[in-house]
Design a protein around this nucleic acid. Structure first.
Lengths: 206, 206
DNA sequence: AGGCGTATAGTCCATGTGGACTAGTCGAGA
DNA sequence: TCTCGACTAGTCCACATGGACTATACGCCT
């Protein structure tokens, strides 16, 4: 019943962040903004509070107690459930091979390190097929339009898309190669441990 | 009072289409889908009906009478008002120089032919500055991360963005050049007239 | 002639999102 | 010491979107 409703990119970011440590909602907001994750998706407070509530309702995360610091309003700390952990992985697996909805893909790429190297390579291969097909479709569309005498000014956006698809393909092939030959460190096992500790503590205890 | 609320991409497409001819909502749906404009933005019926209602409320378009063909349910035909015409132009002027929110930009680019050549060139120049700045920011961000020992696997998405920014810059410079030296026909005056007539009639009388 | 599928035309509700608003607390300066 | 502004933490409402649902009419096959 949980993974029936599709996750939003914001939801994925929240779950992925909770993977690192339990925290309360306001801290999520701060942390995500500090890390500039709003460069991918606009992170409004309202949205984040709503999303956390939904995720709790759907059993992907749960309250882990209420604490109050000093005299401030008490705040509810949340923890990631197993279902949540799995949901992130599944979402990445779904979105990583996609080519449309590019912000979903960017988020998926940002969270791809939650998956194993081989997994990612396979997903990128599927994506590659779509990229090639789409580039081809754009080219034939442009040719057809040219033949039918469609003025070029109406095709400018399509031309751009074709150009960017080429660039994307080149970039992705380079990434895939580095993943396949092992020259790019990947996954939790290959994170230098000094960095693992640093990650959360640095921002949560300023 | 009208242009206070920002237009959505769907709204812009609707207004731009009404520029060509008056039509009723269902026809808008069909036409936009036939032209594959849903490649830019998902075009749901619900969304379009709602959007048209909003646009009417805001005085950007208006009823142009109700007709019934044969015995079919009667349908309301809408016409574009002057405020609507201006709103499209303004929207394009706002979104064309932007670099984030890339689907807005793609729509703006698709509708850029509603603006004059020089206008577009100037807007693209403003956009170019942002592209250059963003590319630079990404590069320094990557350098900084490398120095601080951030594992590369966390920076993959940023690397991609940097690569795509380069490609975008190259594409845009090429377009700008063709606009500036006149080698790309632009604007309503430079559409071959056989095509102008063809455009609406072909799809509305099948 | 009757029935079935598809096209036409549109409504409605659940979900998601963004911005405005509330309200208490801490720190710095007049 | 009082006040003002900024930070903390969160609620609430209006708007946008998507999908399901309704209902009639037309064309085609049998």
């Amino acid at each position: 019943m949980p993974e029936s409703t599709r996750l939003t990119p914001v939801a994925v970011m929240i779950l992925a962040t909770l993977r690192e440590a339990d925290m309360h909602t306001y801290e999520l907001v701060r942390l995500l903004r500090e890390r500039k994750d709003d460069r991918l998706v606009p992170l409004q407070k309202g949205t984040i509070y709503h999303t956390v509530a939904r995720l709790e309702r759907d059993g992907l995360l749960a309250e882990a107690g209420v604490d109050r610091e000093g005299n401030r309003p008490e705040r509810t700390t949340y923890t990631l459930l197993d279902a949540g952990r799995r949901a992130v992985e599944e979402w990445v697996r779904t979105e990583l091979p996609q080519i449309e909805r590019s912000t979903d893909f960017r988020v998926a790429l940002s969270e791809a390190h939650n998956l194993e190297r081989d997994d990612v390579v396979a997903l990128l291969d599927r994506r590659r097929a779509l990229l090639v097909a789409s580039a081809h479709e754009h080219r034939t569309g442009l040719d057809g339009a040219a033949h039918r005498g469609v003025p070029e000014q109406f095709m400018v956006e399509v031309q751009r898309q074709a150009a960017l698809l080429d660039a994307e393909l080149a970039w992705q092939d380079a990434l895939r190669a580095r993943l396949a030959d092992g020259s790019l460190a990947w996954g939790p096992d290959e994170i230098p441990e000094h960095f693992t500790k640093e990650r959360v503590s640095k921002e949560t205890t300023p």
